[in-house]
Design a protein around this nucleic acid. Structure first.
Lengths: 158, 158
DNA sequence: TTACATTGAGTTGTACGCAACCGATTGAGA
DNA sequence: TCTCAATCGGTTGCGTACAACTCAATGTAA
C-alpha cells in the first residue's frame, strides 16, 4: 500500500516541508490548550482531566480500561491523573467486585455539580476558533482521516 | 469581533462536540509522534529535539531566544532540551560575546553528520500520512488559520 | 553617572504522555 | 485440577510543556 511520494522533490526540500505539516498540528493543539487553560483553571481542571470528566458525565461510570480506550491514554497516564481527580473530590474509584482486576471510576456529587460550571466552556472555545460548525466538522473529518492513516503505520492506540 | 455561535444548539450538545474538534487535533498530533518516534529513535532524537536540529541545519546558528520564537517554546522547555542535545554531542552552546545575556546554539560536526541520516525521515512521514502535497498544504493552511484565531484569544506564543 | 526597568537563560514545581516493568486476578488448555 | 498465558491497574523513569521565579547583563531616563 504505497502512497504518492513525489520522488522528484529533493529530500533537502522535504526537511522543511514535513516540519510545517506536523508542526502545524502540534501548534494548533498547543493553541487550543492555551485557550482552554484559563477557562478550565476556574473549574480546577486541566484539559486531560476535563476530557475524563466529559466521558464520565456522558457515561456515568467507566473502568480505567474503558477510559483509556475512549481517550487513547494508557494506565501510566491515567492512574496518576485519576488519583489527582480523586484527591480533588471530583471522582470516586473502586474495585469492580465482579472482576477484581478492574477499577471503576464515577463522578462524585461534586463532580456532577462541576458539570454545571463546565456548560459554558464549549461555546467560548467555539467562538475562539472563529469557525462555524461546518468548517469544524470538515476539519475534524480531515484530521480523522490523517490520524487513521498514521495509526495504520504506527499502532499508536492503546 | 463575535463569531458565529449557534445559540440554538444546547450547551449539552456542545459538551460532546467541542471535544471532538480539539480532541481530533490532539489525536493527530499524537499519531504523528507515534510515527516519528521509531524513526527518530534511530537518530537518538526526540521529536522536539528533531525540530531544533531542523532549525539549526537551516540557519547554522541561532540563539536560544530565536529558537524559542521559531518553535514556540520558552526557556523552561528549551534549556533542559538543549542541555541534553549538548550532552549527546549534537550541539554546542556558547555565550554571545556581544551580548552576554544571549546563548548561541550551533550544530557540532556530529550534529551536521546527523543531517545525512535524517534526510530519509520526511519521505517516510509523507508516505505515512497517505496524503499528497496538495492535501497537506490545504490542511496546513486550515490549521494555520485556526491557530491564528486561537492565538488572538490566548496570547500563547512566546 | 546613577537608579530603574527590561531582556535573556536558567531553575523549580506541576502535569501530562509513553515505554518498560511489576503484581494480582482471571481465563483457557492440557 | 493444575499450569500458564493474558488482562488490568499501578509504578518508575524520561522527556516535554508551562507557570512562576531568580539572576546577570543590558538599555534607558533622570
Amino acid at each position: 500500500m504505497d502512497s504518492p511520494t513525489p520522488d522528484s522533490v529533493p529530500a533537502d526540500e522535504l526537511l522543511r516541508l514535513d516540519r510545517q505539516v506536523c508542526f502545524a498540528v502540534h501548534g494548533a493543539a498547543r493553541a487550543f490548550d492555551a485557550v482552554y487553560r484559563p477557562l478550565l483553571r476556574e473549574l480546577g481542571l486541566t484539559y486531560p482531566q476535563y476530557l475524563v470528566m466529559l466521558a464520565l458525565w456522558e457515561h456515568g461510570t467507566l473502568t480505567v480500561k474503558e477510559l483509556g480506550l475512549a481517550l487513547r491514554l494508557d494506565s501510566g497516564t491515567l492512574s496518576p491523573l485519576l488519583k489527582r481527580l480523586e484527591g480533588a473530590g471530583f471522582v470516586r474509584r473502586e474495585r469492580d467486585r465482579r472482576d477484581e482486576r478492574s477499577v471503576t471510576v464515577s463522578p462524585t456529587a461534586a463532580g456532577e455539580r462541576l458539570r454545571e460550571h463546565a456548560l459554558g466552556v464549549p461555546r467560548e472555545i467555539l467562538a475562539a476558533t472563529g469557525m462555524d460548525g461546518e468548517g469544524l466538522a470538515e476539519m475534524r473529518a480531515s484530521l480523522a482521516r490523517l490520524t487513521a492513516a498514521l495509526d495504520a503505520v504506527a499502532p499508536g492506540g492503546r
